[in-house]
Design a protein around this nucleic acid. Structure first.
Ligand SMILES: [Mn+2]
Ligand SMILES: [Mn+2]
Ligand SMILES: [Zn+2]
Ligand SMILES: [Zn+2]
Lengths: 138, 138
DNA sequence: TCTTGACTTGGACTGCGTCCATCGTAGGAT
DNA sequence: ATCCTACGATGGACGCAGTCCAAGTCAAGA
């Protein structure tokens, strides 16, 4: 993710301080922040940054394939910079913690063609739910 | 689903015209309506029914296990009376159509224990995405 | 340094859902 | 059949996540 800024420059992005700080906040794997969390962390470095710009930048990163949107049952979407290797998510029903997980088989392989009803199926998103070790005790 | 009203009576539900008409709207399998769609169809039979009551009744049906909530990426939740047989969903990225599908294997079986990180994993929700036959042409 | 169009901003706005005070009524008691 | 009351219905205010817009700003090429 540290060479993200290079890739974006190469794609013709105008490099602004706002975009730079949003990209820095998203640095690292295993990060699953909401837009407001991204905004809060970005504002530590750049206090005037607006929510609209954070939403715009996240949306651009998503459509460039640099960041993945993770939908959560009724709360705010989470933004995941781990767009390199395909993975799925394990969510704690107690505290909401999100972990990256890697199933043994491609989930798409388990949908037989007679269950596809003529659709051209391209992706399968899996959300595993359960209780994390600390929520299990409580 | 036609004996749903019986089961609810047995659970101590006070039977009102509003609850009856919501249950009737949800009758049948392969139904995936939003709360507002349920409200619109219920209002054909009972024009004064309020949105709040539809939300209350749907919430009660969900916590009784009679109806399943299906989260959709950023739009309204859909309510699914097919709570009997476990199944997953195939969603058209074009028009939003939802189909019930039955994968060949239990999706939980494909998450090895070393990928569970001490969680007690209880469910796996799979959303397959693609284009339906008519959206493929357009 | 100048110019320009891409980018940013804050606030209004929308969609989806929840909350709450008040009113109505299902269904047991008499 | 009538009464009583706790449970349910109502609709309007409210909240959150996200979008849109007109106006101001600035990155970067000439
Ligand atoms: Mn992830
Ligand atoms: Mn279904
Ligand atoms: Zn937990
Ligand atoms: Zn379609």
């Amino acid at each position: 993710m540290s060479d993200l800024l290079e890739r974006l420059r190469g794609r013709g992005w105008r490099m602004t301080s706002q975009r730079r700080v949003v990209a820095q906040v998203l640095d690292g794997d295993h990060v699953h922040l909401t837009a407001d969390e991204v905004h809060a962390r970005a504002a530590e470095r750049l206090p005037e940054i607006s929510r609209a710009t954070v939403y715009n930048t996240l949306g651009e990163l998503v459509s460039l394939g640099e960041v993945i949107e993770v939908a959560t049952d009724g709360r705010a979407k989470r933004y995941d910079p781990n767009a390199h290797r395909p993975h799925q998510h394990l969510v704690c029903s107690g505290c909401g913690t999100v972990r990256d997980v890697h199933p043994a088989r491609d989930p798409l392989a388990d949908l037989p063609s007679e269950e596809r009803f003529g659709f051209t199926v391209s992706t399968a998103e899996v959300t595993y739910r359960g209780l994390c070790p600390s929520c299990l005790l409580a």
